[in-house]
Design a protein around this nucleic acid. Structure first.
Length: 273
DNA sequence: ATCCAGGAGGCCC
DNA sequence: GGGCCTCATGGA
């Protein structure tokens, strides 16, 4: 058990921010399944309790939650008349950009295309139960590439992958044979990282951007999904403000969370697909 | 029941 | 390079 006070940290908001799919409400708190481990998180007054010792917290979870980054500073970059971002950052205070496992992120966001966050969670949960390791009796690790590369199609189909099934298989095989070396991708410049990821069938600019942002912490990358398209179109006249570009990924996360959870209306916005 | 979802590939021009 | 069309399926 490790207990600590944390600023700008909300496990609930992070769990529902659409960047990760295996932080789930359980009991009075949340359970995080990552790196083959299970971490329980509960709030205790103004502090948080984590179900691990101090050493594990500092070795693994401190980095994962990006706790050495000060998120208060993003309030200072809001442009004078940008009430939308002001609202979004206020509403989403506590969100952080995680540093997730690149392999799990890659497969997760390949699966994510044209799926709701809820449906993505379901697919990844099934995938883990079917091919992952039993960690503690009830939670299963995300399966490694060596397992998925040899997975049977019937099993994969039962995970609800739909037309993304060959994409997942191809990616697993590409990583398994070393065509994609995830350990070394982090050394690449962002544009080269995106290019390399997009060599995979089923990985376009949006999925590559999510992996770059949520696993490789490239905060300048701006993933544009249907929600961000609507936001940019209706709130920013079709162009994401260039003043925000150096950390567009972070600001985008507040906007996405705000729009999705407030279920904003888009007036006459008719953009679809 | 009908529509939507953290999109991408394959055409065609 | 941009404009359409299609893709399988869970969730609301």
């Amino acid at each position: 058990m490790y207990e600590t006070e944390l600023k700008n940290f909300s496990i609930a908001k992070i769990a529902d921010s659409g960047q990760c799919f295996r932080i789930l409400p359980e009991g009075t708190g949340y359970v995080v399944i990552a790196f083959g481990k299970v971490l329980r998180v509960t709030s205790a007054g103004s502090s948080y309790r984590f179900s691990c010792d101090e050493q594990e917290f500092k070795n693994i979870w401190f980095k994962y939650f990006d706790l050495d980054c000060d998120y208060e500073k993003y309030k200072d970059v809001i442009l004078p008349h940008d009430d939308f971002l002001k609202e979004a950052i206020h509403f989403g205070d506590g969100i952080r950009i995680l540093k997730q496992d690149p392999w799990e992120s890659l497969i997760s966001f390949i699966i994510s295309q044209r799926k709701s966050v809820k449906a993505i969670r379901t697919s990844i949960s099934r995938l883990s139960h079917l091919y992952g390791k039993n960690i503690d009796g009830t939670h299963f690790s995300f399966p490694g590439h060596e397992i998925l590369a040899k997975a049977d199609e019937a099993g994969l189909r039962s995970c609800g992958l739909g037309y993304r099934l060959p994409y997942v298989l191809d990616a697993a095989r590409s990583v398994d044979i070393g065509y994609i070396d995830l350990k070394n991708l982090g050394k690449l410049e962002t544009s080269d990282l995106l290019k390399k990821l997009m060599e995979l069938n089923g990985v376009g600019i949006k999925v590559a951007s999510c992996v770059a942002l949520f696993a490789f912490h490239r905060l300048e990358v701006l993933p544009i999904d249907i929600w961000m398209k609507r936001i940019i179109e209706t709130r920013y006249g079709g162009h994401f403000p260039r003043e925000y570009l150096p950390f567009a990924g972070v600001l985008q996360q507040y906007m996405y969370y705000y729009a999705r959870l407030k279920n904003l209306s888009w007036q006459a916005f008719d953009y679809q697909n």
